[in-house]
Computed example of a mutant assay.
Amino acid sequence: MAGSTDTAGAPADRLGRLRATALSVYAGLFYAVLYLPILLLVVLSFNDSQSIGLPFKGVTLRWFEEVLGSSAMRTSIANSVLLGIASSVIATVLALMLALGFRNDFAFKNLLMKVVLLPILVPGIVGGVIYLVFFGYAELPFGVWSTALPVHITWVLPFAFLTLFPRVHGLDRSLEEAAADLGARPWVTFRRVTFPLIKPGVVATTMFAFTLSFDEFIRTLFSIGNERTVPVHLWSLLSDQMAPFLPAVGVVIMAISMMVSLAGFALSARADRRPR
């Protein structure tokens, strides 16, 4: 009987090992496709060569010096950072107000929620053309603050709402009701009860919204006019020439986005650990 059990268990063991091997190969291919291009970009940004590509001819930092030493690049970075801060803060505040409002029942609630999420469903190039036509008819001067800012807020807002709404919806409203019973006004209840509970989500949402705004290209291209953000400036460099410092530009963009994301995760985790 023991021999027959071992014989029956052998195919199952082989099948399990085969499945584990297949999953390992799949995971390896997945991570290779995901991260090897990023690794190649980083390697090429240090390549001491006048052309973009291999072979690797040596290590140099001159491409980063050229990128950071360019006044046009510094201006585009400043535009992207300031635009990202403004649009993320405004969009997060609006999303928080919407999330708090959607806790209550009112007429056309489902329709309004679909309207809030509509920008996600509109393709970027279609949205860009719509903004271009609208601002043209409105005779608004194209620029970072006049046209690109409302475009970025419109683009970031639904993502901020989707991030915040579950957190706000899951709040225990009895805590707010208890504060109201003790005489706290609505603003005091929000400031001292509601906001501390959702603060980690608000911080994470703001950082996430910043990265969305910082990396946005298509809608920005149609709405920013002659000014430049980092993605638009990179596109203009690509359209003019394949300069050898372009990988360094990509690394700078990626580094800023990663630092903001890591800072958001750290602040959110710290706020979660803080005793209430």
Rank of each mutant, 00 (worst) to 15 (best):
G84D: 04
G201R: 00
R173H: 11
S80Y: 05
I38F: 15
V251T: 09
G101H: 10
S88V: 01
G136N: 14
P231R: 08
R167C: 08
L117Y: 03
A266W: 07
S76T: 09
V89A: 06
G3I: 14
V252D: 00
G127I: 04
D215S: 00
R191D: 06
A12W: 14
L162N: 03
F165I: 09
R192V: 05
V42K: 01
L40K: 00
R270Y: 08
I153G: 01
S257H: 05
L149E: 04
T60P: 08
P186N: 11
V59T: 12
M254T: 14
A248E: 10
V260Q: 01
F102Y: 08
D13F: 15
D240G: 06
A99E: 09
S213E: 02
A22F: 10
F210P: 00
L246M: 10
V126Y: 08
A248M: 11
L246S: 06
T220N: 04
V122A: 01
L40R: 02
L111E: 04
A86C: 12
G84L: 05
V260Y: 00
V122P: 00
L61Y: 10
R185W: 06
L39E: 00
F161W: 14
V151H: 09
A8R: 14
M258I: 15
L98M: 14
A10S: 13
L237Q: 10
F30C: 07
S87K: 03
V188D: 15
G124V: 05
I85L: 13
M242C: 00
T60I: 09
V42M: 07
D105E: 15
V129E: 07
G3F: 14
A179E: 11
E216D: 04
G9A: 15
I256F: 05
Y35W: 09
R173L: 14
L61I: 13
G124H: 10
E66I: 07
T7L: 13
L267C: 06
R74I: 10
P123W: 10
A271F: 10
L171N: 01
F46G: 07
Q241F: 12
V193F: 01
L15V: 13
A138W: 09
A160V: 01
G101M: 13
L171Q: 03
A78P: 05
I120V: 12
V251G: 06
I38C: 11
A107W: 14
E227W: 11
A180V: 04
A95K: 07
S45N: 05
A271Q: 12
E65F: 09
F56Q: 08
G16M: 10
A27W: 02
G58M: 05
T194P: 03
L29F: 07
N79I: 01
G127H: 00
T154M: 11
A148F: 00
T206V: 09
E66D: 12
V203Q: 02
A22L: 13
I125Q: 09
I125R: 06
V33N: 11
I198D: 02
R192C: 04
S71Q: 09
L246T: 05
K199D: 02
I77M: 11
H233S: 12
T194A: 01
S174W: 05
P196S: 00
